[in-house]
Amino acid sequence: MPNVRFLLTGDTSLSAEFGNEISEEINAQIRAFTIALEKSGIPGIVELVPTYRACMIHYDPGVISYRALTKRLEGLLGQLGSIEIPPSDVLEIPVLYGGEMGPDMAFVAEHAGISEQEVVAIHTSTEYLIYMLGFTPGFTYLGGMSDKLETPRLKQPRVKIPAGSVGIAGKQTGVYPIDSPGGWQLIGRTPVKMYDPDRETPILPKAGQYIKFRAIDRAEYDEIAAQAEKGAYVCRTYPRGEAAK
C-alpha cells in the first residue's frame, strides 16, 4: 500500500498525495487509485483531478463528511493491490514536422548537432507519459523526452502560436491545444484538434495515458485536417505494450 497523505484543500475537496517527486511510478499509483476510486461507488464524489503526484478529490460534504471519506479512501488504498488496473492507452498524434509548421526545427537540429530527420526520428520514437493536464484546456505535461532534444525556450516568446503546434522547451515537449502566446521551439504541427469544446469528448488526451507522435507528410496532413474539421477524424489508440503497427 503506497504511503499516502490526505491534505485539506478546503471543505469540499481534499488532496491524496502520493509522494514528493515527479516519477512514472508515483503517477502510475495515482492512475490506479483514480480508476479504483471511480469504480468504488463511494458516494458524494464530484470530480477527480489527478496531477504529478497527487489526486484532488472534490466531494459533497452534504453526502459524505471529510472524516467518513478519508476512512473510505484508506480502505480503498488497502485493496489497491487486488483491483485490476488495465494498461494505459497510447494516443497516436500525427505530426507534420519542419517547414512552415515547425519554424524552429532548424534551430533545434543545430542545437542538438544532428539532422532534422534525426530530430523527427528521436521525437517519434518515445511514448510520452501524460503526467497531467493544466495551464489551458487540453495542455499536457509530458515526460520522457530524450535529453538529446533538450533546447532552451525562445528568447522572445511569440505573440500567437497556432493550435496544434508541437514544441520543445527545455526538457519538455508538448502540443499547444489552443492559439496562445508562448516561448516553445516549434518543430511541427498536428492537424488533430486536441481540444474542441463542441465535441462529445472535448479534450482528447487524459492524464495517465501516453502520447506517441507519428510523422506524416503534407498530403496526409491536409486529409486529416479536412476530416478533423468535420469532426470525423479519430486518433488511433492502443493499449501500451501492444506494438504500434
Partner: peptide, 10 residues
C-alpha cells in the same frame, strides 16, 4: 512545489 490542483478560495 510540484504542481497540484487548486480549489476555489485556496
Amino acid at each position: 512545489i510540484i504542481s497540484d490542483g487548486i480549489a476555489f478560495g485556496a
